[in-house]
Design a protein around this nucleic acid. Structure first.
Lengths: 243, 243
DNA sequence: CGATATCTTGAGGAATCTCAATACTAGTGG
DNA sequence: CCACTAGTATTGAGATTCCTCAAGATATCG
């Protein structure tokens, strides 16, 4: 996939405050800030549209920006030298990315569908963090949340069967859809079988077979447009073995 | 394992500043603070000795404390309802634990060997965080580091073979030993085969077989006291497939 | 509407797990 | 100090899940 051309980013539409009308604001890092502070943040923010299957940044790049997804979907992944891939997370509107330990990104971020992000230059973000302890706190709590999610994912990867993995994955997508105000039932599954496989530590074939199996057991229905209807949520929940 | 009796914690020895003589201070969260601030932290700190195989806290407990390991070793794990276990991390001296998203711990913490920890009541810690932005920053960077480590572990769990997992595990133990000022070569491996298995997403038998295999290939030697001599570090590094 | 990628299904194989027996280790009490 | 015991580790044989390779079906996009 060609890397997205960062040299010509789409400027945020020059509204008085582009963040004022932001639909995902209550979901995201910005929820911590009042109007004045949002304004300050808006000044360093650039909104950017990215087509599907484009790289936002790559593992090892110097971490110059942080991002907030305002629409679309993004995957984060790490590679082994021989090409094996582990997707560490999928991001949707409201999700934040770009935390980095040292000065480099620890993973590659690639759009799954057409996506819009808010881009925050890291340096300026850092000064804002000093200025607004609330923002710092918010980011910290965000990192803690991600850490908890990462631990759940370790449990899934290390100890769950293929069927449990798929069931957990579908329920988690449903739950996250609800959290951003969408309905829980027919869920959007915008990523490919191969992406799902690399997220769950499986192969595409096993993912496909397991979907078929769940469909046969009338737990799910595969709809057009990559949507999945969860017919029997209870059955799926029993399959996750985690309540 | 019986939970450790928190009703009778061992008081920190009433030194002028117990932290003043702390050997792991430069390694840990306290490194961020100057003398006065350390003093303030010391006031809310209790040092505590815990025997091997005791629980510090359990998944789901209300998160009342944060801890810093000053000696010994601790494992963190999550359980599935049927008893399957995933160890999400091992902690050694200098390591911090007890971050929690909501008010509850997301995992169980259990000592592997006899351990001493510094215990910080969460509520008081929270006010210190407000008071010392440096401490807040430090904790944030700590969480970011853990997040990066968690992503590495996902790659391991989802995409590496048993042999690669064991090799990565041993090298990581070695590296961490160096970071806390110990020598890299014969490494202490205080945890049981079963713990290693639950950390790497394997069974005890596979862990044991893989150790034997590495020994046969003259990459490692198993010494008494649970120590492991890394004879051929290069071979191990090649096995990790991650450089 | 054709080309291409993605998804599904099948058959066989491999890595790892399960079950079971034996060996070792460390701690306990005589 | 030694033997005993209980836990832990190793090894073996067979089972199973998931993977690999391969073909066919379906969807997507120009």
């Amino acid at each position: 996939m060609p890397p997205f051309d960062l040299a010509r980013p789409a400027r945020a539409t020059a509204d008085v405050s582009p963040c004022g009308a932001c639909a995902v604001r209550p979901l995201t890092v910005c929820a911590a800030l009042d109007e004045d502070e949002i304004q300050r943040l808006a000044e360093i923010t650039q909104s950017q549209r990215v087509a599907a299957h484009h790289t936002l940044f790559s593992e090892g790049d110097t971490a110059q920006n942080m991002y907030n997804v305002t629409s679309g979907s993004v995957k984060l992944y790490k590679l082994l030298p021989d090409g094996r891939r582990q997707i560490t997370g999928f991001l949707f509107s409201g999700d934040f990315l770009g935390l980095s330990v040292d000065a480099r990104y620890a993973y590659t971020a690639e759009t799954v569908t057409a996506t819009t992000v808010c881009r925050f230059p890291r340096r300026q973000m850092d000064s804002l963090l000093d200025e607004f302890p609330k923002l710092q706190r918010r980011l910290f709590s965000l990192a803690s949340n991600e850490l908890a999610a990462a631990q759940d994912q370790m449990l899934l990867l290390g100890r769950k069967t293929a069927r449990e993995k798929i069931a957990s994955f579908l329920l988690s997508l449903s739950e996250r859809a609800v959290r951003r105000g969408q309905k829980s039932n027919p869920i959007q599954v915008p990523m490919s079988r191969s992406d799902i496989a690399d997220y769950l530590g499986l192969t595409t074939e096993t993912v496909s077979r397991t979907f078929t199996q769940l469909r046969t057991h009338a737990a799910i229905r595969l709809l057009e447009g990559g949507r999945v209807d969860i017919c029997d949520e209870t059955a799926l929940m029993e399959m996750t073995e985690s309540g």
